[in-house]
Write a protein that binds this DNA or RNA. Structure first.
Lengths: 180, 180
DNA sequence: ATTCCCATGTAATTAGTTACATGATTCG
DNA sequence: CGAATCATGTAACTAATTACATGGGAAT
């Protein structure tokens, strides 16, 4: 129910084609809301019939034509309405936590090696967030109101990766598998 | 694809009826893998035909009969096999992050009040994990190998709630809305 | 009387994933 | 010559949610 709203936020910031949106959902927005291009095209169609967005065709030379979507007044109304409804807490689903919990019934070495891999992914993602923050917000005290939301979700990502690393370290330490 | 395995882990620890499992997925296991009773009954049926679990009927007086499920040898094999496959990283989906990102297009006060509510939920959950740790693992240095997995996922919950609280505080502080 | 606990399911719908499909251009 | 980028979709399937359905016993 919320991919629609994630798309609305993205289009409120800047008009985009389905393809553009798919790329945004691979990067910035995608850090906290993933979506495939197939899903995006499907939802965009629904949103167009709901009049939340409107498309106009842009002909291009040398590359395929594209449909550029823009948010409508009704779309903005919907964003405002949605922003003031209470947000349900998403149920957590962590397959690696199930594996850790079930360690006595599993392949210990394989799970620990999985944890090591996960730790590396967290480290890489943390570095990415760090670079992104340094590039876009070199002076955190100078962040304007309009950028604050984007900055804060970057912070969320940053903090989550740190926590992920710390958890992996606890696991590896607990099993005496933290030396490399 | 992994509810099956969460159920296998739970049944490897102790046999249970669908109803019992549903309660476990409301509590312990449910902290990192949510599932409704409808879904559990459906999956249990599939798992029975796959011979991963077997059921025997327990007649009760004064309350409805129940089907008690136990993991089979094949189920244990599957658990072991699954534990040594690489775990994909779950895509994050945080509706509140979308709202924070879209703050310039939303109802600021409503979103901040939503963040305050979310903070309280994190605090309550943290207290729950704290109490649970104090009860089950009063002496962390005395935790045995067989309990270690369960303890570590409790730690994950604990750390995640702490991070959640810290993020909420950053948001409220950034918008100068942190006084109550 | 009403609500909660025990106990098990089916049916309908929505959301999301995976696979399939096409075709031009640009870069190495 | 092959891979990547740009660009848009359909079709089939799986997973999950929501709603519906039943019924006895115990506690307030």
């Amino acid at each position: 129910m919320a991919l629609e709203h994630a798309i609305l936020v993205s289009l409120a910031e800047k008009t985009a084609s389905g393809y553009d949106l798919a790329r945004r959902f691979d990067a910035s927005i995608g850090h906290f809301w993933k979506a495939s291009h197939q899903q995006i095209y499907k939802v965009l169609g629904r949103m167009e019939s709901d009049k939340w967005v409107e498309a106009h065709l842009v002909e291009q030379s040398g590359r395929p034509d594209k449909k550029v979507y823009a948010i409508t007044g009704e779309g903005r109304d919907e964003l405002l309405r949605w922003s003031s409804t209470p947000t349900p807490i998403e149920p957590t689903r962590s397959e690696i936590a199930v594996k850790v919990r079930g360690l006595p019934f599993g392949d210990r070495e394989a799970v620990l090696s999985d944890v090591r891999t996960r730790r590396e992914a967290h480290v890489a993602q943390l570095a990415y967030y760090e670079a992104s923050a340094a590039k876009h917000y070199p002076d955190p005290s100078a962040i304007g109101e309009d950028e604050l939301g984007a900055y804060l979700v970057l912070r969320a990502g940053f903090m989550q990766e740190q926590t992920g690393i710390a958890w992996c370290d606890e696991i590896l330490q607990a099993f005496g598998a933290d030396e490399r």
